[in-house]
């Protein structure tokens, strides 16, 4: 398979979402972990940064499709439709993480099964974080029980997202299929298969 570089739209979408998520993760961690809450204090500003990042995230999700609808639609279809080769990726997840995985068949599209699963799960978790954040912010509009359930799910979704992102960063950057290894292999004049399995 020939590697298709990400378009400018995809890069803007990926890195603006990544930046917003990193700010939300950092400020959320400060608000959640008691020792960090004590060390940092400044609840208003930490909360304000968390909310500002969420707002930027929503604006990106509205603006990018509005400006590049056809491209985003194609990207969404590329990530949503799973093929036979994708199931092969899922059958050996530990082989992927342990760098023993060799694809039985090259994916027909641009993305492998892992990338599609990450996009789906991260998308669902981020949607849940936004959804549950609504009653946490506008708590006066909802019952206390509903706000409590929303917060419980917000924490669960945040921890799930953290696990997903750790896996993503490992596979995309540090694993033998990742960007750093690929760059080292490229500099050494060796073939690299990261476009197949990252």
């Amino acid at each position: 398979m020939t590697r298709t570089p990400a378009s400018a739209t995809e890069k803007v979408l990926h890195w603006s979402v990544a930046a917003a998520v990193l700010v939300m993760a950092a400020t959320g961690t400060v608000m959640y972990v008691p020792s960090l809450s004590q060390a940092v204090g400044e609840r208003f500003w930490v909360r304000a940064a968390h909310l500002a990042a969420a707002l930027i995230f929503v604006l990106v999700l509205l603006l990018v499709p509005a400006l590049r609808w056809t491209e985003i639609r194609r990207l969404e279809r590329g990530l949503s439709f799973w093929e036979v080769a994708d199931w092969d990726w899922f059958r050996r997840p530990w082989g992927v993480f342990a760098s023993r995985y060799q694809p039985a068949a090259a994916p027909a599209g641009r993305f492998n099964g892992g990338q599609k699963l990450l996009a789906t799960l991260a998308g669902a978790v981020l949607a849940l974080l936004l959804l549950t954040g609504v009653p946490m912010y506008w708590w006066g509009w909802f019952s206390g029980h509903l706000v409590a359930r929303a917060r419980d799910l917000h924490v669960l979704a945040a921890l799930g997202l953290a696990a997903l992102l750790l896996g993503h960063v490992y596979l995309a950057l540090f694993s033998p299929y990742g960007l750093l290894q690929g760059r080292r292999a490229s500099q050494a004049g060796l073939p690299t298969d990261r476009s197949e399995t990252r």
């Binding site: 439709f81 036979v84 998308g123 669902a124 978790v125 949607a127 849940l128 979704a157």
Partner: peptide, 22 residues
């Protein structure tokens, strides 16, 4: 043959989460 598994999984996950909250 491919199916829109990702889209369905996304919608199912969001619906399940909303159901849990409600």
């Amino acid at each position: 043959m491919s199916t829109a598994v990702g889209r369905r999984l996304f919608l199912a996950g969001v619906a399940a989460g909303a159901g849990l909250v409600a």
